[in-house]
Design a binder for these strands. Structure first.
Lengths: 137, 137
DNA sequence: TTACATTTGCATCATTGTTGCAATTAAAAC
DNA sequence: GTTTTAATTGCAACAATGATGCAAATGTAA
């Protein structure tokens, strides 16, 4: 789906910053940090505009954040857009990339009495297939 | 186990700040934020000292951080100290507390070929039993 | 009690994110 | 195609979190 269509679907004004962010994130096969997105973005936007665009896109569940160790913040397209189920995220300790594991659904957890869950976040840390290959060669 | 014993076990100097932090965290039945810990702590420490103490305790896996939405940072005793398995964390959307679900072990996830996992973080968001009770009354 | 290495507090700086406000822009109405 | 209106942008300022260098203070071992 095109950025413009996504913005229309959520009744958001199609500003170049929002379109650009969606395009860059859509094109990537991994979650991207703020700086990675800015590097690939055409045009120069104020930091404030950036953050506000992210916030808006997040609030409408067009993108979502994945945070690793309270340090690394990465963004990816949200389930509601990709039509996939709630999935686990994978962080590679070697190359520091974050990927949405669309084929690894979040499992159901049995909570103690009285607790009800709304949402579950799963972050798996380890070595990705790319880095593993490089080690073996 | 006493704070002093824990510090000794890891060959760390027993400074009052470190002891205090461990004591406060041990006494709590939920994960605490920096400010919550500082409030309960006897003595006034510089912010830098605080952060360095946390860092040291984290590096030695005496405590661990749980981060919610890249915003709320909470600390709790680590598995290596409590002798429990890797567990899920629960964040209450109502009262904003974080608890270690020691009885909810992290499940095994089947990753795509080539991926190997080292550690899995699970954060379940929802309503805790306390808040649920208050709603029903 | 002394000696040495570690830790503390202070000043300073970096990063990430927010808010208020005037200027600009997108989208709808004319 | 213009005008109108509401949303968005950029700027300045601010807040929170965290790191670093360095001299002073403290813990530990001798």
């Amino acid at each position: 789906m095109k950025a413009v269509d996504i913005l229309n679907r959520y009744n958001l004004k199609r500003t170049s910053c929002r379109e650009g962010i969606i395009d860059v994130i859509t094109a990537a096969n991994q979650a991207l940090s703020e700086n990675e997105i800015r590097e690939q973005l055409v045009g120069n936007y104020d930091r404030t505009t950036f953050y506000r665009s992210f916030k808006t896109l997040e609030e409408h569940k067009i993108i979502h954040k994945i945070i690793v160790d309270n340090q690394l913040v990465k963004y990816a397209l949200d389930n509601t857009v990709t039509q996939k189920d709630e999935h686990a995220h994978f962080y590679c300790n070697e190359c520091n990339t974050v990927k949405c594991m669309n084929d690894v659904p979040v499992q159901k957890y049995q909570l103690p009495d009285g607790y009800s869950d709304v949402e579950t976040e799963v972050l798996i840390k380890g070595i990705c297939s790319n880095c593993k290959n490089q080690k073996n060669n």
